[in-house]
């Protein structure tokens, strides 16, 4: 197990999540793509912490990433709830009011 190997796995997770976030129409599925991207970020930060600088700072950074995931999920569900109530749909294509 090397830093490069872990970073490759993290890059794969990030890329799969990016594909999902860009290609899915259902908002909750888009959120799942974002979560998968953050999953890759968590793994990469853990690898940097272990292989480069095993100080407590890296662990604190991981806690912040996990908190960011919590915020992302809470706000995503709130927006999905609002969209579903006002438009009867939870698809991203029904929320393109701001598109140029």
């Amino acid at each position: 197990m090397t830093l490069q190997a872990v970073l490759l796995v993290a890059a794969a997770l990030f890329s799969v999540g990016l594909y999902g976030a860009l290609s899915q129409q259902v908002i909750v599925m888009v959120m799942m793509g974002l979560e998968l991207m953050l999953n890759g970020v968590i793994l990469a930060v853990g690898a940097f912490w272990w292989f480069l600088a095993p100080a407590p700072d890296g662990q604190v950074l991981l806690l912040i990433v996990i908190a960011a995931m919590t915020v992302e999920m809470a706000m995503g569900f709130a927006v999905a709830t609002l969209l579903h109530r006002s438009r009867g749909s939870d698809m991203t294509d029904s929320a393109t009011d701001l598109s140029g």
Partner: peptide, 22 residues
């Protein structure tokens, strides 16, 4: 329930290649 699958796949593969190269 997807859109722009081809463009998304191209972007995802490109991102992976960039990150893996780094």
């Amino acid at each position: 329930m997807t859109h722009n699958k081809r463009g998304s796949a191209v972007l995802a593969v490109g991102t992976f290649v960039l990150l893996a190269a780094g």
